[in-house]
């Protein structure tokens, strides 16, 4: 069924219990994702993007819980599953490429063995020989020479470790891959290779991908759709072209403007004022989290809860100041 999305996230709200009371890490997140498609989640550190990835994997830390919402992969509601059922699905249905993948490999085991272990946990009936073949095939897939299978992680370069982690994520042939900052701490050239690899899997193996990154450049390379998050809220969602060409939310505009690229120019002289990081006025709960930094904000922004406005059938924005045709 081509119309049926693989992943359907509805009104997802995730809360952390802390000593200072509950903290909302992600609020009212909605999106869908089809097979072979990719969505990018961008935002500053602490905006809740990693939390969403963890929730999709069912790996929220102990003090985090889903307050409301639904996560449906194919026809399974993840949140209704028991822990063992979830564990059975994990890696088979959805796999994650973790942030700081360098540390995701166990330094005392051979890389090949670690991937073999991942396969055998989910396919216990595989023979050692068959598992070995699978590992070799995965190494081919991510372009690591086969003679490195029996090396230890410290013998790998940063880029190779990252590939090995991707191989591990692919080991159980998942339908959905969540890549959390997959290229942070890698060189530009290696980053480019890794991103091309991820893109290739998405196209060839019909895998849906979620790329979580603070770098809009990374997302632009891989994704079809983009979700911009700020302080736990989705504030803009749309096709990459739409969001890049006509960003509607002032934060998205700021984010795009602050991306330095080889093509664009940034005039430091013209805009010499310093962005202060201290809040100017207090914002009422529920109101726009960006109001205190926003140039276009007025009183309304500080008190009123913003509602979604649709700029097109695929492009929506959570801002009071955006004027749309349908109003």
């Amino acid at each position: 069924m081509p119309n049926m999305p693989l992943l359907d996230v509805q009104n997802l709200t995730i809360v952390y219990r802390t000593n200072a009371g509950p903290v909302i890490a992600a609020e009212d997140v909605c999106f869908t994702l089809e097979r072979g498609r990719a969505v990018g989640i961008v935002g500053e550190s602490g905006c809740g993007k990693t939390t969403i990835g963890m929730a999709l994997m069912g790996l929220l830390p102990e003090n985090g819980f889903v307050q409301q919402g639904r996560i449906i992969i194919e026809d399974t509601d993840l949140l209704s599953l028991t822990k063992p059922a979830l564990r059975a699905l994990r890696w088979k249905k959805m796999a994650m490429i973790f942030q700081a993948a360098m540390n995701a490999l166990n330094p005392v085991h051979r890389v090949g063995d670690q991937i073999a272990e991942a396969i055998q946990t989910h396919y216990p009936d595989y023979s050692a020989d068959k598992t070995r073949k699978e590992v070799a095939a995965l190494f081919d897939l991510v372009d690591i020479p086969r003679n490195r299978i029996d090396d230890y992680p410290h013998q790998y370069s940063g880029g190779m470790k990252q590939r090995a982690v991707i191989a591990m994520a692919l080991s159980c042939k998942p339908d959905l891959i969540i890549a959390d900052e997959p290229t942070t701490a890698l060189d530009v050239i290696v980053q480019d290779q890794i991103l091309k690899k991820i893109k290739a899997f998405q196209d060839d193996m019909n895998i849906a991908t979620i790329v979580i990154s603070h770098d809009i450049g990374v997302v632009s390379e891989v994704c079809d759709n983009i979700m911009v998050m700020y302080k736990g809220r989705m504030i803009e969602y749309g096709k990459c072209e739409e969001v890049f060409m006509s960003p509607a939310h002032p934060y998205t505009v700021a984010l795009l403007s602050s991306h330095l690229s080889l093509d664009s120019t940034y005039d430091f002289q013209a805009d010499i004022e310093n962005i202060t990081e201290a809040p100017a006025a207090s914002v009422l709960p529920g109101a726009c989290g960006y109001a205190e930094k926003c140039r276009h904000a007025d009183v309304q922004c500080f008190v009123q809860t913003p509602a979604w406005r649709h700029l097109s059938s695929t492009h929506r924005v959570l801002c009071l100041k955006v004027v749309t045709n349908d109003q």
Binding site: A20, V23, A25, G46, T51
Partner: peptide, 8 residues
């Protein structure tokens, strides 16, 4: 995550 800044 978010509370890191809050506690400050």
């Amino acid at each position: 995550m978010q509370s890191k800044t809050e506690t400050g």
